[in-house]
Design a binder for these strands. Sequence first.
RNA 1: GACCUGGUAGCUCAGUUGGUAGAGCACCUCCCUUUUAAGGAGGUGGUCCUGGGUUCGAGCCCCAGCCCGGUCACCA
Length: 566
Amino acid sequence: MQLSPLEIIRRESLQKLRELGINPYPAEEFKTTAHINDILSNFDKYEGKEVVLAGRMMSRRIMGKASFAELKDASGRMQIYISRDEISSEEDPTMYNTVFKKLLDMGDIIGIRGDVFRTKVGEVSVNVKELTVLSKSLRPLPVVKTDADGKIHDAFADAEQRYRRRYVDLIVNDHVKETFIKRTKITNAMRNFFNERGYLEVETPILQPIPGGAAARPFMTHHNALDMPLYLRIANELYLKRLIVGGFDAVYEFAKDFRNEGMDRTHNPEFTVMELYVAYKDYNWMMNMTEELLEKVCTETNGTTEVLIGENKVSFKAPYARVPILEAIKIHTGFDVAGMKEDALRDVCKKVGIEVDETMGIGKMIDELFGEKCEHHYIQPTFITDYPKEMSPLTKEHRTNPDLTERFELMVNGKELANAYSELNDPIDQRERFEDQLKLSEKGDDEAMFIDQDFIRALEYGMPPTSGIGIGIDRLVMFMTNNASIQEVLFFPQMKPEKKAPSVELNDDEKALLKLIETKSPIALNDLKTESGLSNKKWDKCLKHLTKNNLAKVNNTDDGLFVEKV
RNA sequence: GACCUGGUAGCUCAGUUGGUAGAGCACCUCCCUUUUAAGGAGGUGGUCCUGGGUUCGAGCCCCAGCCCGGUCACCA
């Protein structure tokens, strides 16, 4: 392994700590008595009191026999003051002069015991009396500094590095941690909301023999013992509805779903959806619940019902506008497509500049029309309702119009945040809808749904009228934290594999040159160059590559330069 | 997948018709007991993304590729 000079120094320090009898990775519990944020916000309570803290040393200012350092624990950062004669003595200054000043580095995890005080310039600090090494850091951290004006210098900002090394991102970029704390607040708020109503949180299979409940391309895997294909779920809908058949009044699940589709700043191959199903309700009830839920989530995480999303100020205060999808299309394209046949609809699509092909059915085209021409207009939370039947195979037919379904999507900031319906519970209708999907699939739509026979069997036993909803959690977190990229709200977004570390692989020219060196060693450099027959540049590169990897050596002697094998 | 932009020290970035690879921070050595992004002095550190090509000479020009980002396409 190739170590940088900075890493070599740290490894040497590690060794010296051991030689001084200090275990750089001690096993014992380190009992702390306070958290940094608590000290900072309750200084009066802590002033003059002794505290024990543990955390990572984020900066160090050494000034002779005294130093200041910044300690960061899970709650925040504060300054600590370390003087030679407190943690060691004039007679034996090892702990200060050697351990603290020489062998410790930024990024090391330490424990301190000392008194809380305020410095002359007013900074709350801890006067350290005892210092314990808890974990030596062998890699240097990026040094991010914030000046008096709050301006950040040398930010660790490269998105790729930040996502690949999220642990570093979390250490040095405090605002990143805030995003993820908020994410958990959001899901906790939702759980509390549901649990207070007696809804049951459940878990259903991720590995599914039939990937149902959504139109998407699945990931496929294989079970060896059963020798059968299995799919990673694209949705959990059909399983949750089986549980409603089984007699639960309301079940919900925070589900990781997996879709084998494109990746961009709003799509990750795995993502989180909260799905909820409530018996004896319809989609009107669900709209009311959704408004109430999101208003509460927003208030609990941001302290207000208004959030800034990019340029837009968005209010999650209930109620939200409700617009039928065909109405939306009429408003934004001027075409009334209600009741249109497939051919007529295809003409409309062409007129407004949407590319269509023969595999696209009515549902797909309406979806395109809305997605292309309408979706981005809905900045404030808006329920788009009553989708055509063809694009909603799991949804109950609309009570007043058999061409439509009782379905809504919630649009926020021009994006879909939630999808819900009065669930189809007529097993015969459901079978027909699945068969229609099969026809689409035969037409070439590779996202059309499979027929789930067991799900139909479940419906045949009878499912109460039920309303269900799926809320995209990653998207919700993006909205609530004002992040434009899904990668910012996932701890570990999917990334292409890292480039392999360069291995010592020789190309043909280098192999030939090495062979020449091995047979003629030692040989005058200029003779070797002539014999190799390589161009100037190639010669230089090849020889440097060999010497760098310690396969050949150039000796500078009184008689000139000679190349030797190693 | 297409196009655009970029890839230089651990981090943030300069780099002149193509002529000895730079700065700040970090790191190392020395001096300094309550400092405020950065105290002072000196020093170490580089496959300039990779591979070809042009050239006496390439971080820079040409070709091919890789990777990040962006726009579009794909994607309820």
